[in-house]
């Protein structure tokens, strides 16, 4: 049932995690595990558990990815002194780098265990870097450009506006895009602020809900695509936030997720 893309890859990851656990470098490894016939996020505390580890590939590559960094923030809040290992793909590593700059995680308390994504996943994601800087396992696939953004931009302005309005119209205001987002960490969310998004009414006012979120993704979104995968209405959120990434890059010369020595131009948290 579960077909690892490259069987040797998981063995390399298991060996690395075993080493980290055995040496006491980490107190636990946040990764994925085959459980109940599914692939689940799991905190590995002992090497005995590693047998059923998964890399998140079930029927196709990367179809069981989870916001592990988001879960890591919860663990780090509860156990600030503990060091955790975490399974990362290219996007997750961009997430970690960005979360360090937003003071949501301490880099000396996180040990990323990186894997690469195969080319078919990189293609589907239009991923700008489908591998972490120093992967523990896997071959590096080729980088891809944001073709989906280019395609929407080919539309004349009124048609492009209509396209997005039609897409946003489908929203059922489930907040899934925010809830799954590993980069959404605010205690108070603008999307629950009556001045911007009225509570108690569905559907949300169009386009303010989605534009509010898009603006807040500037300098934060690392293009993992979990929002789009969580959207019950199939709104192309990833394309929207890819555009936001491009704007921040062009206007501020800041490539979200690619640096830790520079903060997002919208980051005012010291």
């Amino acid at each position: 049932m579960v077909k690892p893309i490259e069987p040797a890859m998981i063995d390399t990851v298991k060996a690395k995690v075993k080493e980290l656990l055995d040496s006491g470098t980490i107190e636990g490894f946040l990764g994925l595990k085959e459980k109940n016939g599914h692939i689940a996020p799991h905190l590995f505390r002992s090497v005995q558990e590693l047998e059923s580890m998964s890399l998140g590939d079930r029927e196709v590559a990367g179809d069981a990815r989870y916001p592990l960094n988001k879960m890591l923030i919860s663990l780090a809040c509860a156990y600030p002194e503990a060091t955790f290992g975490v399974l990362v793909r290219g996007c997750d590593e961009r997430g970690l780098k960005t979360l360090y700059t937003w003071n949501q995680l301490h880099r000396d308390k996180v040990v990323p265990v990186g894997i690469t994504c195969p080319q078919d996943l990189a293609d589907r994601c239009e991923c700008s870097q489908p591998y972490p800087d120093e992967p523990v396992a896997g071959e590096k696939a080729e980088q891809r450009g944001f073709d989906s953004v280019d395609k929407v931009e080919e539309l004349e302005t009124p048609n492009r506006f209509a396209y997005w309005m039609d897409e946003f119209e489908k929203c059922i205001k489930c907040y899934g895009c925010r809830d799954v987002c590993p980069m959404c960490f605010c205690k108070e969310c603008s999307l629950e602020t009556d001045e911007l998004v009225r509570s108690g009414t569905i559907p949300p006012e169009n386009p303010i809900f989605h534009l509010t979120r898009a603006v807040h993704m500037a300098g934060r979104c690392i293009d993992c695509g979990l929002c789009e995968e969580a959207c019950p209405a199939d709104i192309p959120l990833r394309t929207l936030y890819k555009k936001v990434f491009e704007i921040v890059d062009e206007e501020f010369n800041y490539r979200t997720g690619y640096t830790t020595d520079k903060k997002s131009p919208l980051n005012i948290i010291d």
């Binding site: 689940a40 919860s74 907040y175 995968e229």
Partner: peptide, 20 residues
Amino acid sequence: GTIPCKTSPTNEGKLCIKGW
């Protein structure tokens, strides 16, 4: 926390606001 199951044939990693 609540996180939708990606491999569930019923909801395929999605939830409504109540489920979340």
